[in-house]
Simulated scan of single mutants.
Amino acid sequence: MEKYCATWSCTPYANKKLNAAYEDAQRVADGCPIFLFFFVVGSGQFCGMAEMTGTVDFHRDMDFGLRHKRSGSFPVKWHIIKDLANLNFFKLTILHNNDNRDIQRISWKRGLRMLNLFKRRTSSTTPLLDVFMQEEVYR
């Protein structure tokens, strides 16, 4: 699959955590990549996996409509775009040390298991992009 470059944004809390993780990976781990699995709240689905390719620009906001404005954004390169029901990942995403629902860190072992699930499973019947389009139409 061709890789798609894009810009993403999370809550201010998540953006700060991601920025710190990216800077640490660049400094301490000699540029180790940061991979992100995307689950959009309210969709009931994971929608893919992307690589964070730069720091958060806290002066570049993204506006997804009145209730979805985000402060700061960062570049990503999508490696997998596939909608899978979150039930596929239930056992892998339960974390006991989670301090915030906006962002969760998982071990590389869980990450590999999630990648294998993305590889083996077929997309769900309601593509996430269709959900976004319906929200846009009804605003």
Rank of each mutant, 00 (worst) to 15 (best):
D24P: 00
F74Y: 15
F39G: 04
F74S: 03
P127T: 04
D63A: 07
F37K: 02
M133Q: 14
F46T: 06
Q104L: 13
W8A: 15
L84P: 00
L129N: 10
N19S: 10
L115V: 09
D83N: 14
F38S: 06
A21W: 02
G44F: 07
P33R: 08
N100W: 05
Q45A: 10
L87W: 06
I81G: 01
K91L: 09
F90N: 08
H79C: 07
W108P: 06
P75I: 10
N88Y: 15
C32A: 15
S107V: 12
N86M: 14
R113G: 01
S123R: 10
N100G: 01
D102L: 03
G48M: 05
P75E: 07
F58M: 08
S73F: 01
G48N: 05
Q45P: 01
N19P: 04
R70K: 11
S107G: 08
L128E: 06
K3N: 07
F46K: 01
V137S: 06
P12R: 08
L66N: 13
Q45T: 09
H59F: 11
D130H: 14
K91R: 11
N116C: 10
F89M: 07
M133Y: 13
N97T: 10
R139F: 11
A50M: 02
E23C: 04
Y4V: 15
C10T: 11
M62H: 02
W108N: 09
F89S: 05
M52T: 03
F58E: 08
D63C: 10
S124V: 06
N15G: 06
E136W: 14
G44V: 04
C10D: 06
M114E: 01
I34A: 00
G42P: 03
W8L: 12
N88S: 14
F118Q: 08
M133R: 15
